[in-house]
């Protein structure tokens, strides 16, 4: 091809306007978004139901809609059992969270940072509780407490919850430790930090987001656990066991109030931490 031809062909600007391309209509263009919105709506149905019925004028059972009221919210503790069960859940959740977070964080640091024998079996020991159905864990602990003659109560529930939260803490914190650049700690040592100072001033602050996330996860697992708790509760009622036992005779609207309040608080925490993470990312993005 001669250059002249190429130039003539190539740069000759055709005067006649070309039609705009037809947009392709594919599966992804409208079907998928529509489906996704509908799927999310479906997921939210029972949540909305629970929240709406926390405003219902109701007697003992809270199934039919009788009219709107704030009374259940203002008088949550009119139903003393609900409040007591909620209190027990908070107490159990807090203690289990603190102990599981401490034990789990220690294991996570050791797993990522140190070499030791029996590594594989340690990892298996962490993984297995997550792969064991709750009935088995519940029944096993109950059988053990039974044979050891330990009376069931708040104590046994806390021991059980700490156990199953532990594995989740290890997994969450481990991811954070692994993503931590060891050079940062080395720099700390290089700058005359004692091991203790390095841990307190560098390692721990960097791990804190992961530890907090693990604690949050622990608390929500503990707070919502029913199966393991039921096997080891004795006469103590937590919020979930209260609902289970009351299911036959009807759940008071105050239970919906507590569940809704917990829901809003949890969503608020998640949204705030997301926004904080987003703005931190933006801030870091500006100064590369």
């Amino acid at each position: 091809m001669s250059t002249q031809e190429a130039l003539a062909l190539g740069l000759a600007t055709t005067a006649k306007p070309t039609p705009a391309p037809r947009r392709r209509i594919g599966l992804g263009t409208w079907l998928l978004p529509t489906y996704s919105v509908m799927a999310l709506v479906f997921l939210l149905i029972p949540i909305v139901y629970t929240i709406v019925f926390s405003f219902n004028i109701s007697g003992k059972s809270n199934i039919a809609w009788n009219g709107f009221t704030f009374a259940n919210w203002t008088n949550v503790c009119d139903q003393q059992d609900v409040c007591a069960a909620f209190g027990a859940s908070l107490l159990i959740g807090s203690i289990s969270t603190v102990s599981a977070t401490i034990l789990g964080t220690m294991i996570a640091i050791a797993l990522v940072r140190y070499r030791f024998r029996f590594r594989a079996i340690t990892s298996l020991l962490i993984f297995l509780p997550m792969a064991t159905p709750e009935v088995v864990i519940g029944a096993g602990l109950a059988a053990q407490f039974l044979s050891a003659g330990v009376p069931k109560g708040i104590g046994t529930i806390i021991l059980a919850h700490t156990m199953f939260c532990l594995s989740f803490v290890v997994v969450t914190v481990k991811a954070r430790v692994a993503s931590l650049d060891p050079a940062l700690e080395e720099a700390g040592r290089d700058l005359y930090g004692s091991p203790r100072q390095v841990f307190l001033r560098i390692t721990f602050p960097l791990l804190l987001p992961g530890i907090l996330a693990a604690a949050l996860l622990s608390f929500s697992l503990s707070f919502d656990d029913f199966i393991i708790t039921y096997f080891n509760a004795g006469t103590v009622q937590t919020f979930p066991t209260y609902i289970y036992i009351s299911a036959t005779r009807g759940i008071p609207a105050q239970a919906n109030v507590i569940a809704s309040a917990v829901f809003f608080i949890a969503i608020a925490i998640v949204v705030i931490s997301q926004v904080a993470a987003q703005s931190r990312r933006k801030r870091l993005g500006k100064t590369p």
Binding site: M1, E5, A6, L9, G10, L11
Partner: peptide, 11 residues
């Protein structure tokens, strides 16, 4: 922005 060109077969 406003790209027009022709590339002949086999080139």
């Amino acid at each position: 922005e406003d790209l027009s060109l022709t590339i002949p077969a086999g080139s």
